[in-house]
Every structure is written in C-alpha cells, then in structure tokens.
C-alpha cells in the first residue's frame, strides 16, 4: 500500500456546504468495502498538515476520452460537508487537479446474511457510508428491502435523493426544524418502525453523532437485534500508528478494558463491542 495520486473528475455542491467529488486514482486501488474510508490530502504543502478521513461513497465512471468507445475508467466518489479549513480547501479543487489519498482503510460493514430486512440510520453527513452500503448491496444483486431513516438539521441537507431512489430504498427523513419529513430526530422513528417490522429478522446499520448511536445501541440491544455502527473520531494517521482515534471497548469477563482504534479495528463496529458510557 502507498499514497496514490488521484485526479479530480468532478466536485460540485449538492446542498449548502455539501460537495460530491469524483476521484480517478492514477494507480489501481484495492476495491473498497462500504464503510471503509480514505485518508485524503487537502494541501500540497505542510499546512494544513494532516490528511482528512472521508468515507467511501461509491464508484462511478470517469468521463471517457472522446476518441474512445470504451467505458470510462472506474473512479471513486466521496461526499463531504465543509467544516473547517481542510474540507474548505477540498471544495475549491477543480476537475483536472490532483490530490493524493491512502485507502481504502479500516473495517467496512459486515453482510448480515440472516436478516431479511435492513434498516439504515444516518445522522447528517453520516449518510455517506450508508449510501455506500446500499449501493454495494444493490450492485451485488441483494434485493432485500432497505429502509433508510435519515435525520438532519434541515430539509436541504437531505440531498442526493435521486441517487437514493435509484437504489430502491424507502427513505424516511427526519429534520430538527421540521422542514422535511418527521419533525424531530431520526431515533424517534426507530422504535415505531421496529414494532412495524415485527418478527421479520432485521439488522440495523447506523452512522451519526455519538448520542444517536448510543441510543440506537440501547434500543437494538434490548430487542436483541444485530446492530453495526460506524464511529467518528479525530484522526492523525488513519493507519493505527498514533492512537488518536480510540474508543473504549466493552470489557469482556475478567479481562481488563481495551481501547479500540476507530481507524483500524473500525470505523465499523458491532454496537456491543463498544462501552457506550466512556466518552
């Protein structure tokens, strides 16, 4: 593995401060499992210094050369929200420019073959690895019904709806300002929908703020529903070297508690692996 140069093929805004970027790696990268992430450079110089962790959103085709009949080359996509300096610099990149990235990194979502229905819960930009999952399942020909509960601050943040529709999933939006879908939190919808689903074996996949994931972990653990979560921690290396990104693992019987590196053992964990009370 090594840092690989990638060419920006598109970078456009989908919603206020949310950008979708296509990157064509100049050398082949391993195929990503949904839930994995890349460490992306946002500058060429020494400042800002560190790479930014960004999830795999999906694959796309680079525009094909005019002369050729072949399909365009396989490119990857990321979707990001402008937060600070690094993502702001990313948002200013134009097609043809280069950046470099390392990845795909970490552990992605597990398949959950025994579930007959899949329930995806996203909080804000936490949609990225979940759209990645839905896309991967459909590409693999998985026809199980998918329900996506997506909570956001306001309706305009619930973006890329056509993309989601194309994945044949049921979208249940929730907004804190009530401008779109359920007025309130994504987690408000969890218990009612689980009631609705009844006895059909279901599995839950979630990515969002800690408090949301903690709540989902509680509900699914009570109901003994398999639940995977994708966690977010500040990262310096993304490679397991610096120990910046740890969360506390749930202590097993008679064993001392251990830290888990979100970049290496995660970012996707089984909810029961995490000690949700340490933060």
């Amino acid at each position: 593995m090594k840092p690989v140069q990638a060419q920006v093929i598109h970078n456009y805004t989908l919603a206020p401060r949310i950008f979708r970027m296509g990157l064509l790696p100049l050398e082949p990268l391993p195929h990503a499992v949904a839930g994995q992430f890349y460490m992306v450079r946002v500058s060429r110089g020494l400042d800002p210094l560190l790479r930014r962790p960004l999830s795999h959103f999906g694959y796309c085709r680079a525009p094909k050369p005019k002369s050729s009949r072949a399909k365009g080359e396989a490119a990857l996509e990321i979707l990001y929200q402008v937060k600070g300096r690094g993502t702001d610099l990313l948002s200013r990149m134009t097609p043809g420019e280069h950046t470099d990235l390392i990845g795909p990194l970490g552990q992605g979502w597990q398949p959950e073959p025994s579930a007959e229905r899949l329930l995806l819960l996203a909080g804000g930009i936490g949609i990225v690895p979940l759209r990645g999952l839905a896309d991967q399942l459909r590409v693999q020909g998985d026809k199980r019904p998918l329900t996506l509960i997506w909570g956001a601050g306001t309706g305009s943040e619930i973006c890329c709806r056509e993309d989601l529709e194309a994945l044949d999933l049921e979208l249940l939006p929730a907004t804190e300002d009530g401008s779109f879908g359920h007025p309130g939190l994504a987690t408000d919808l969890l218990e009612p929908i689980l009631e609705d689903i009844g006895k059909t074996p279901v599995a839950v996949f979630a990515c969002g703020p800690w408090a949301m994931l903690k709540k989902i972990a509680e509900v699914t653990s009570q109901k003994k529903i398999p639940c995977q979560v994708s966690l977010d921690e500040f990262m310096a290396c993304g490679l397991g070297a610096c120990l910046s990104c740890v969360v506390r693992g749930r202590a097993r019987d008679h064993e001392p508690p251990q830290n888990l590196r979100v970049c290496k053992e995660g970012p996707v964990f089984r909810a029961e692996e995490i000690d949700w009370n340490v933060r």
Binding site: L49, L50, F234, P256
Partner: peptide, 25 residues
Amino acid sequence: EPRLGNPTPRMAETPAGMLNSIGLE
C-alpha cells in the same frame, strides 16, 4: 502496567503541526 491513556479528543491539528495528549497508552 498497561495504560489506556487520556480521554478523546486527544489530537488537534495546529499550523504545520499537531498536538497530542495520547497519555502514553
């Protein structure tokens, strides 16, 4: 003895550098 280090966030980027408070995990 093993050490778990400090609570997170324990990394912060700064101009051309970073701060860490890993706490010798």
